[in-house]
Design a binder for these strands. Sequence first.
DNA 1: TGGCAGGTTTGGAACGATCCAGAGCGAGGT
DNA 2: ACCTCGCTCTGGATCGTTCCAAACCTGCCA
Lengths: 332, 332
Amino acid sequence: MATLATVAAAAGVSRQTVSNALNSPELLRPDTLERVQRAIERLGYTPNRAARNLRTRTSHLVGLRLEPAVEGSASGLMDRFLHSLVESTREAGLHVLLFTPEDVNNPLDGYDALLRSAAVDAFVVTDTYRGNPQAAWLEARQVPFVAFGRPWEDPQACFPWVDVDGRAGVRLAVDHLADKGHERIAWVGWQKSSYIGEDRRNGWLDRMHERELPTTRLSARGEDTIEFGRRAAHALLEGEHPTAFVCVSDTVAMGVLQALVDLGRRAAADDVAVVGFDDSLAAQVTGLTSVRQPLEEIAVQIVRLLEDRLAMRTSDEQNIILTPELRVRDTS
Amino acid sequence: MATLATVAAAAGVSRQTVSNALNSPELLRPDTLERVQRAIERLGYTPNRAARNLRTRTSHLVGLRLEPAVEGSASGLMDRFLHSLVESTREAGLHVLLFTPEDVNNPLDGYDALLRSAAVDAFVVTDTYRGNPQAAWLEARQVPFVAFGRPWEDPQACFPWVDVDGRAGVRLAVDHLADKGHERIAWVGWQKSSYIGEDRRNGWLDRMHERELPTTRLSARGEDTIEFGRRAAHALLEGEHPTAFVCVSDTVAMGVLQALVDLGRRAAADDVAVVGFDDSLAAQVTGLTSVRQPLEEIAVQIVRLLEDRLAMRTSDEQNIILTPELRVRDTS
DNA sequence: TGGCAGGTTTGGAACGATCCAGAGCGAGGT
DNA sequence: ACCTCGCTCTGGATCGTTCCAAACCTGCCA
């Protein structure tokens, strides 16, 4: 295997000159640079990562902890996000290293080991919703990291994050339905204790109030299951006879769709309209209109913040909120 | 940051002794070992990965190339597989490094760079279905790797792989339906050019013949889209009036379900039964009975073969075929 | 002609671990 | 008393790169 020394010998220069040819080519005289580059080319040389990592005390690796996926929930967001993240990191000369905790219930497990062994330079933190001890922990240790998700529980928290404006996403959904003539638009959401759930619900309230549409007895809250969506839809339909449903998630929306099937109604623009949230595979496959998170853009922004952080640059704006878009399909 | 030397000084031994305490504790006298371990504990020492990698010429990283996900296909297999793989690698002291190609159309892109920079020790290769130049390429370079998927195009190929017995999976599905009394069981599959598709279809043929059930005009083949599933179901229903459908994928099955909705029929055990393949999120969410690939077990086996390969052990059986199971839900 | 500033190039040291050959030491055999 | 053996432990060399300070040019100016 070719090393710096091999190349140096072949080009008739010193090791350091070869190193400079790669890292600071502007230091070399053009003809030397050319000669070295040819030698590199000829020998098929690629710098050894381990040696470079050791010397520079960097790894160009970004750690991402995979959280256990919830079977049966419609999402599958992670898949799309991962792709985008890996793509963005590649363009930044970084790589994504995955890890899982030994102890799933310890939100900090895994970070420490990677950090102390200098295996990664930084982290991307997801699932900040159930409190974010990781963020505080990493912050305290001055570890570079960027979060996907706001610190809901601690709005003062001062670390870089990127998030989606769920509230605006739901406003889009309500606008869409109201523009189609719907007036009795129901909300099917999560428990009050969910920050994300309440944020999205506020989007519904925003527009319903703005358009002076009724909201009383048109809102249901429960867990993120198909079963809840189904029950909620039955109850709402018996009560205020909504003509449209905006749901906090695709999972819940799937339940609403089932309720419509139960009752022999059609989920469509001209009967009962339904909108979900996440643009999951289930939505794509069942033709459910849904709010789509711009995961590609999120990944790009996360990597941008990460680069700033790694370069010790403090970015002007280190908290970024992106607006989702509505994917209109058969159910509305 | 604590290093070997720091710990050695603290424990009053040489660097090498500390190194041995970690890597070959059986070489040390118990009391020395104890003393060193206490020093390690006290100083919170963790070996530096870069240094270890450099010296041992290993990285304990496994590369996995993320292939572009097909939007709109129901799968989402990768998500589940990744989780399991990361979990299994962790137990083996390895980590998963993700990468994507710059040029998506070049199936080899990305491998070379990681390899030459000694960034990874091995690869896990997926998507071997469209020919497997990666496998041949890696094999030629004697790079340790394990494939998820058989070398369909070159059954002679001699490298370790793990795959799912799709044929057996479909046999399960047909058995299930036939046991429920169905006799006119249709097949909705992929084009003849798909090895995987034909393999699964053979499972259908196996059981239909064995049980002396009719197969003529009960089979359709096309692409992996909802639209195809829908059209195929309409055509089949008009023709031979099947009472059950076995589908090559959940995506196609979703189309079949839609066709039933079109016709006002119910997908259920007592009307028209439908079975999909992959146990995707869409299946879980819509209550579609489906054949589930044992991805957890696949990951375990892949890592086992990988360990053998990395240790230069030649495993007795380096080709493993696992049998999927049937997840019975509402549609059958 | 000598000194000096600038751009180029160089060689030694360092990063933190493991490999390897050999030193120290007590027990057992002759 | 001497030698050998096996168990522990040690110190120097090494992996391949980058940092750092100094050496080397070359042309310019006094």
